[in-house]
Simulated scan of single mutants.
Amino acid sequence: MTAAEVTHFRTFGFVRLRGVQDDVVPATGDAFEDVLGRFPLVGRQGGAGVTRIAERSDVLQEALLADDRCPRLARRLLGTDVVYAGGDGVRYDGAVDWHRGSEHRALRLVAIVQHLEPLDGRTGALRIIPGTHRRGGSWDTFSADLENPLRCLGMEPAQVPAFTIESQPGDLVAFDPRAYHASFGGSAGRRRITTTYASVPESDAARRELGEHLLGDRPGL
Rank of each mutant, 00 (worst) to 15 (best):
A66Q: 14
A66H: 14
A66P: 10
D67Y: 08
D67M: 10
D67K: 13
D68I: 03
D68E: 15
R69P: 01
R69G: 01
R69V: 03
C70W: 00
C70V: 13
P71I: 13
P71W: 10
P71F: 13
P71R: 06
R72W: 04
R72L: 13
R72F: 03
R72P: 01
R72G: 15
L73G: 11
A74P: 02
A74L: 07
A74M: 04
A74N: 08
R75G: 15
R75E: 15
R75A: 11
R76T: 15
R76S: 12
R76H: 09
L77T: 15
L77Q: 07
L78K: 14
L78A: 08
G79H: 09
G79A: 10
G79F: 11
T80C: 06
D81M: 10
D81Q: 13
V82A: 03
V82P: 01
V82F: 06
V82E: 04
V82G: 01
V83P: 05
V83H: 08
Y84F: 14
Y84I: 06
Y84V: 15
A85P: 11
A85D: 07
A85N: 04
G86C: 08
G86T: 01
G87W: 11
D88M: 05
D88L: 03
D88A: 12
G89L: 12
G89V: 12
V90T: 15
R91E: 15
R91S: 14
R91P: 00
R91L: 09
R91D: 06
R91Q: 15
Y92Q: 05
Y92F: 12
Y92W: 15
D93N: 07
D93T: 00
D93M: 02
D93H: 11
G94H: 07
G94V: 02
G94E: 07
A95C: 10
A95I: 04
V96R: 00
V96G: 00
V96I: 01
V96F: 01
V96P: 00
D97M: 02
D97P: 00
D97T: 11
D97N: 08
W98E: 11
W98Y: 12
W98D: 10
W98H: 09
W98P: 05
H99R: 03
H99M: 05
H99E: 09
H99G: 02
R100V: 08
R100I: 07
R100N: 02
R100G: 03
R100Q: 15
G101Y: 01
G101R: 06
S102D: 11
S102V: 04
E103W: 04
H104E: 10
H104N: 14
H104I: 00
R105Q: 07
R105Y: 01
R105D: 09
R105G: 03
A106W: 12
A106V: 12
A106P: 09
